[in-house]
Design a binder for these strands. Structure first.
Length: 411
RNA sequence: GCCGAGGUAGGGUAGUGGUUAUCCUGAGGGACUGUGGAUCCCUCGACCCGAGUUCAAGUCUCGGCCCCGGCCCCA
């Protein structure tokens, strides 16, 4: 027997209904803000991703060589492909550009709760725009989506990596990249003890950086240290605009995220429960990929939802299935087929393919949750009528050909 | 890659070295040739894979695979 590859999943019809329902709501949400769907290839040149994230990520990517010796990779995320697309052929479009995507991504990682080797991302990229207004739109939209899909409980954290970088690099002139990274990582993990120990080790006064981890009013504290610099104004304006949309994020200046390409505001959204160690359901921010990919400098920003993680925490009530079954026995199959065809103009209709008796077909309808059946048997065919049966209460009525559609709708 | 817990019909399970591997559910058929849900009967269907120990392995040992929780990483 052939097993499903590690970290992949099969989805049953019931689960696909849930997923499509949420997907539909997400699409509706972003389309109401003027976003349009785009699609990029499932695989790209490996370089696209190493350029963005460094050589190290090759370990976590599904990469391969094709028969023409090209080094390719299944996309591990969608921001880089979308920006590549933009740089390739959309740079002269009028700004802003509002794009959204919903697709599967692939990462070679150890699977655990909320983490798979094939997983789905729903995200947007907003290219162009003045920083404060565009950042407002990005974050407000992400919250709008969650509100629309009915996910009420989440934590929104907003930070600014440029402030973080500035604060850390101002501590020592000779701070190399590796040390900075380690500091960022400890901060991102909120490992205060580890951070203190490490800062002491490399001779930095932890007090100077403590405002980044502060939970009280980090903006005020940053202002005290840096003065009223542009980064702080941006954050304040953003908070003001968000409050107009009734969004009150938690400021967290220690968010480091991928860091390599984020350049300004960053944000993360966490589910409150149900995901174990993988609580993050959304991440995004401002980045500078366009120039890196050889385009004309243009600010852009975006976010992506971990669709599968959202599905883990979201509770959705089941939609009732509205299936009609046309039941006919072997001597009347032709008539049954004709009736089914007529009904399919307006309804979902099933026909028996098992060759079952009338009794067994009813039994099947019952156990499949089919609420309405039309019986087309010899008796009906000979006298030229149909029998409609309501499976909920067992009541039956007869009707002629001309009122079939109407009567079954009202059954 | 690391640490830990697991893997018995489609789903849920019993089974501490010894009959033909238990029970529930499910699925297919029938009792019942034009009327479902109840009942009864029949049928289908499993020890993750591979080595080893043993007279004998679902059970013990080792390796692999998969899965679950966590670490690392997280574009």
């Amino acid at each position: 027997m052939i097993e499903r590859p590690r970290g992949t999943r099969d989805f049953l019809p019931a689960e696909m209904k849930r997923r499509r329902c949420v997907e539909r709501k997400m699409r509706e949400s972003v389309e109401r803000w003027g976003y349009e769907e785009i699609k990029t290839p499932t695989f790209e040149h490996l370089d696209l991703f190493t350029l963005k994230s460094g050589e190290d990520i090759v370990d976590e990517i599904y990469s391969f060589e094709d028969k023409g010796r090209r080094k390719l990779a299944l996309r591990p995320e969608l921001t880089a492909p979308v920006i590549r697309f933009y740089v390739n052929e959309l740079q002269n479009e009028p700004k802003p550009l509002r794009f959204y995507y919903f697709d599967d991504c692939f990462r070679y990682e150890r699977p655990q709760k909320g983490r798979f080797r094939e997983f789905w991302q729903f995200g947007i990229e907003l290219i162009g725009g003045r920083r404060d207004l565009a950042n407002f739109e990005m974050i407000a939209l992400s919250v709008d989506i969650l509100r629309n899909i009915g996910l009420g409980k989440f934590d929104l954290h907003v930070g600014d990596v440029s402030l973080l970088k500035k604060a850390v690099s101002s501590q020592r002139d000779d701070l190399d990249e590796e040390k900075e990274r380690k500091i960022f990582r400890l901060m991102d993990k909120k490992d205060e003890e580890g951070l203190k120990t490490y800062l002491a080790e490399i001779g930095i006064d932890a007090e100077n950086l403590s405002f980044l981890m502060s939970t009280l009013d980090p903006i005020e504290e940053a202002k005290r240290i840096f003065g009223d610099i542009d980064e702080i104004k941006q954050l304040s304006t953003l908070l003001d605009l968000l409050s107009a949309y009734e969004i009150y994020p938690k400021i967290d200046l220690s968010i480091a995220r991928g860091l390599d390409y984020y350049t300004g505001i960053v944000f993360e959204i966490y589910a409150e429960e149900g995901l174990g160690a993988q609580r993050q359901i959304c991440g995004g921010g401002e980045y500078d990929l366009i120039k890196l990919f050889g385009g004309r400098e243009e600010r852009s920003r975006g976010f992506a939802f971990g669709f599968d993680r959202i599905m883990e925490v979201l509770e959705i009530e089941k939609e009732e299935e509205n299936m009609i079954m046309v039941i006919s026995t072997d001597d009347c199959r032709r008539e049954g087929i004709k009736v089914a065809r007529k009904l399919r103009k307006k309804f979902k209709v099933e026909l028996d393919v098992m060759g079952r008796s009338l009794k067994s077909q009813l039994s099947y309808a019952n156990s499949s949750g089919i609420k309405k059946v039309v019986i087309v048997g010899r008796r009906e065919v000979e006298k030229n009528f149909y029998t409609l049966k309501d499976m909920n209460n067992g009541e039956q009525i007869s009707c002629g050909e001309e009122d079939l559609l109407e009567m079954i709708a009202n059954l």
